[in-house]
């Protein structure tokens, strides 16, 4: 391959674990024979999208909210700070944490495929993998966010982070108002997967209802 650089030291995609490959093998063979309907399989898997470790990321967010030193470590080196909890960002990629503030809103996407830091966020939602979200988020992030129910004021800067060979991204959402007296565990329970993708804010417990 052409000249190696630190960004592209890895110019192929990591080979999944043996059991993951066996699942792919069985699935693709059965799909070809018409014995398994991939769409029906997706529907079923989506019902479990919140069952693959999404609380991991929520714990990290809550810690960052209550511990300024941890938050700084998280923003300085997401991979290392996640490792303090025993989490990784995926198949060895660097994990970069981007912080939402009163003036900046971040959203993550993978335009080329559907890279996703699943050890901290769980299973990607179907729309994250859709061609529409992947292509349009970069072109019209405000429009996409609005369709997903998040209206952002014009004076807020929107930054879109596209996963690449070197890094995956994770959004540190803003701590909502009215949570000063809450425990770290209580805070973690407020944090949603969508907030860590950056398509939602973390709702204030007093504002009623966490999506």
């Amino acid at each position: 391959m052409s000249q190696p650089s630190s960004d592209h030291a890895q110019d192929h995609t990591d080979v999944p674990s043996d059991p993951a490959l066996r699942v792919k093998a069985l699935e693709s063979l059965l799909v070809e024979k018409g014995l398994v309907d991939p769409d029906a399989l997706d529907v079923l898997v989506d019902t479990y999208e919140n069952r693959v470790g999404p609380r991991n990321g929520a714990q990290v967010v809550a810690r960052a909210w209550v511990d300024p030193a941890y938050k700084q470590r998280l923003l300085d080196d997401g991979t290392e700070a996640m490792a303090e909890f025993g989490y990784s960002g995926g198949q060895g990629e660097k994990l970069t944490v981007v912080e939402n503030t009163s003036s900046v809103h971040n959203v993550i996407v993978c335009t080329l495929c559907s890279c996703y830091p699943w050890p901290v966020l769980g299973l990607p939602p179907t729309w994250y993998k859709s061609a529409a979200f992947r292509s349009r988020t970069v072109i019209d992030p405000r429009g996409v966010l609005s369709e997903l129910g998040l209206e952002l004021p014009k004076d807020i800067e929107v930054r879109v982070w596209d996963s690449n060979a070197a890094s995956r991204y994770f959004v540190l959402p803003e701590r909502p108002d009215g949570t000063d007296s809450m425990s770290e565990a209580g805070l973690a329970a407020l944090v949603t997967r969508d907030a860590m993708i950056g398509v939602a804010k973390v709702a204030s417990p007093t504002a009623g209802g966490v999506s």
Partner: peptide
């Protein structure tokens, strides 16, 4: 509870 996506699959 699935530890990895392939398990849910």
């Amino acid at each position: 509870v699935f530890a990895e996506p392939w398990q849910a699959q």
